[in-house]
């Protein structure tokens, strides 16, 4: 089963490679990983999407916690978090399908951020399922290039990560 895990880390030299090499060294799946600094001094936050059965997920969380630079690990899979991803999508858009692309963009509340006579570049944001859905519709029209950020996630409700 797919899990979305949030990892708060010290913004130390080499922390990304420690996390990445934990996944490769122990043969854990890594579907996506995104990382950037947070509002707190010296702290970054990674969002990792991974897969595995319950026992593997328990190992992943424990192993992440064991890394010296990891401050906190939260698994959002039980619906306790909200998740978003952004995609930049370049699609072929010529005479007959330009209107169709625009309609799809409109339905998904996406945006056109670059235009040429032959293409549109679309910015789409939403939970990863929504991104998959818009891609599904655009693909037959001619998908030229795709960049996804990978998921970012945050806990629901009023509480911050410290509780």
């Amino acid at each position: 089963m797919q899990h979305t895990i949030s990892v708060l880390v010290e913004n130390e030299f080499g922390v990304l490679s420690r996390v990445a090499s934990l996944f490769s060294g122990r043969g854990f799946n890594l579907d996506s990983l995104s990382v950037a600094p947070t509002n707190e001094e010296g702290m970054s936050r990674m969002t990792i999407v991974t897969r595995g059965d319950e026992q593997i997920l328990e190992q992943i969380t424990k192993q992440l916690n064991k890394l010296i630079d990891v401050i906190k690990v939260v698994d959002f899979t039980d619906g306790s978090g909200v998740e978003r991803e952004m995609a930049l999508i370049k699609v072929t858009a010529e005479d007959d399908n330009r209107a169709e692309v625009l309609r799809i963009v409109d339905i998904f509340r996406a945006k056109i951020i670059d235009v040429t006579p032959k293409s549109y570049t679309i910015e789409a944001t939403g939970n990863p399922v929504k991104i998959d859905a818009i891609l599904e519709l655009l693909r037959p029209l001619g998908l030229k290039e795709l960049v996804r950020t990978g998921s970012v996630a945050i806990g629901r409700g009023a509480k911050g990560w410290k509780g």
């Binding site: 026992q55 190992q59 424990k62 192993q63 064991k66």
Partner: peptide, 8 residues
Amino acid sequence: VDPTSIKK
């Protein structure tokens, strides 16, 4: 003392 040893 190491939680990762447990249930590994």
